[in-house]
């Protein structure tokens, strides 16, 4: 049974064709690749370096490295995973130069917001303030609006860096857990904790949005 409903990108025909075009110096193919992934690279870099401008530089270094190493891409992972890995390595190198510790060097202790507010449960751990179904009144329409996507995008940006990075790779980019652990060099259990905390916060952001807008 499929439990997540998320498509995981596999190295495949599309990748092979794209790589061929890139190696043939097809500018449109590279432009599309930039459009698709540049901001994710910046976001990945932002987990390691703290200035937006530095993250932007790291992303550009990563692209330069992608261009230079295209001939060596062997298709053992998907192209995008390969690009993410290059960006994370570039960011780690930069962080080491700046003697920054990475957000993954230690799992942060749980903070308020990482789990559902305990005040919403009674003493037996059952809901006392249960979630209200989002589809109850104005079926789906409201939450389908672009506004809700903006709320979600903003909430994602505001996540603690380590959570944001894991959620971006897993849930926005559709990478699987082992790939994310490998790209970031983190353990499976840390990956799960960060993903869980991030998802918990994002669901709440949408819940707050939905309840604000309710009549």
């Amino acid at each position: 049974m499929r439990t997540t409903g998320l498509a995981v990108s596999e190295p495949g025909d599309d990748d092979a064709r794209l790589v061929e075009r890139l190696r043939a110096r097809d500018k449109a193919a590279f432009a599309a690749l930039i459009d698709q992934h540049h901001q994710t690279l910046v976001r990945l870099a932002l987990a390691y370096v703290h200035e937006e401008a530095t993250a932007e530089e790291v992303a550009q270094e990563a692209w330069a490295s992608v261009i230079k190493n295209l001939a060596g891409f062997e298709g053992r992972s998907s192209l995008k995973t390969w690009i993410f890995r290059i960006a994370v390595n570039a960011a780690k190198t930069r962080a080491a130069k700046e003697k920054r510790s990475t957000p993954f060097s230690a799992l942060a202790p749980e903070e308020p917001g990482d789990e559902v507010d305990p005040a919403r449960f009674n003493d037996s751990g059952m809901w006392s303030a249960p979630p209200a179904a989002w589809t109850a009144d104005d079926p789906e329409k409201r939450l389908l609006r672009a506004e809700a996507m903006e709320v979600l995008a903003r909430a994602l940006d505001e996540l603690p860096a380590a959570q944001r990075t894991v959620v971006t790779l897993r849930d926005v980019e559709g990478e699987d857990a082992p790939t994310v652990c490998n790209i970031l060099g983190i353990t499976e259990s840390n990956q799960r904790v960060l993903l869980h905390r991030g998802r918990t916060r994002l669901r709440r952001a949408l819940e707050e949005y939905a309840s604000e807008r309710s009549p």
Binding site: T4, G5, L6, A7, D35, Q36, H37, H38, Q39, T40, P130, P131, A132, A133, W134, L143, A148, M149, L152, A153, L156, V167, D171, V172, G174, R199, L202, R203, L206, E207
Partner: peptide, 20 residues
């Protein structure tokens, strides 16, 4: 309901358009 909302959150994340 909680689980449905979590799934819905994931569906939306998957559809976030790349930033320009």
């Amino acid at each position: 309901t909680y689980l449905d909302q979590m799934r819905e959150t994931l569906r939306r994340l998957r559809r976030l358009p790349p930033e320009p």
